Amino acid sequence: MARAWEADPSALFDRRLGKSAEELGNSDGNDECPDIWQLDNGDVAVIGRDLTAVYGSRLPRA
C-alpha cells in the first residue's frame, strides 16, 4: 500500500509559527531550542527532539 503523504526534504522554510524561544525568553543564546515553521509547500516542520517512536502508538486512528 502506498503512503498518502511523504515529507518533501527540498521544501524551504517560509515563516515561523509563533514566537521563537529567544523572543519568549527561553533560550540561552544557542540554536538548540525547538521551533515550528510553515514550509513553502504548506507543510509544517517541528524542529526538536524526535519522539516519533514514543508517540506513534498513541496517535488516534484516522
Rank of each mutant, 00 (worst) to 15 (best):
R49Y: 09
A4T: 13
A21L: 08
N30R: 14
K19Q: 10
M1R: 13
N26R: 12
M1C: 12
E23T: 03
A7Y: 13
S10F: 02
S57A: 12
C33K: 13
R3C: 01
G48S: 11
M1N: 14
G18A: 03
V46L: 09
L59Y: 11
N41Q: 08
D40T: 06
S57L: 07
A2V: 13
S20I: 05
E23N: 09
L24P: 04
S20Q: 06
A4W: 14
V44P: 02
D40F: 06
D14A: 09
P34E: 10
E23W: 07
N41G: 05
T52C: 00
A7V: 06
R61N: 10
T52W: 06
Y55T: 11
Y55I: 13
V54P: 00
A62M: 08
G29Y: 11
N41W: 01
A62Y: 09
C33D: 15
R49P: 04
D43G: 07
A62E: 13
D40I: 05
D28V: 07
E6G: 02
G18F: 02
W5V: 03
N30G: 10
Q38L: 12
N30F: 13
D50G: 07
E22V: 05
D50C: 08
A45G: 01
I36R: 05
S10N: 14
D31N: 15
D14F: 08
A53H: 08
D35V: 02
R16Y: 02
L39I: 00
D31S: 15
V44D: 00
S10G: 11
S20L: 05
Y55S: 05
A11E: 10
G18T: 03
A4G: 10
A45Y: 10
I47R: 06
A53V: 05
D8P: 09
V46G: 02
A62W: 10
R58M: 11
G42W: 04
G29D: 07
G48N: 11
L17V: 11
D40Q: 06
R3A: 01
L17I: 15
D28Q: 05
C33L: 08
G25D: 05
C33P: 01
S10P: 01
T52D: 04
R61P: 02
K19T: 01
P34H: 11
R3E: 00
A11Y: 08
P60Y: 14
P34M: 13
D31Q: 13
W37P: 04
D14K: 13
G29N: 10
T52I: 02
D50L: 09
I47M: 11
A11N: 12
G42N: 03
A45W: 12
K19A: 10
I47K: 09
E6Q: 09
E32K: 13
A7I: 05
E23Q: 15
C33I: 01
G42C: 03
N26L: 15
I47T: 02
R3K: 14
G25E: 04
L12F: 03
Y55H: 12
D14S: 10
V46K: 04
I36N: 01
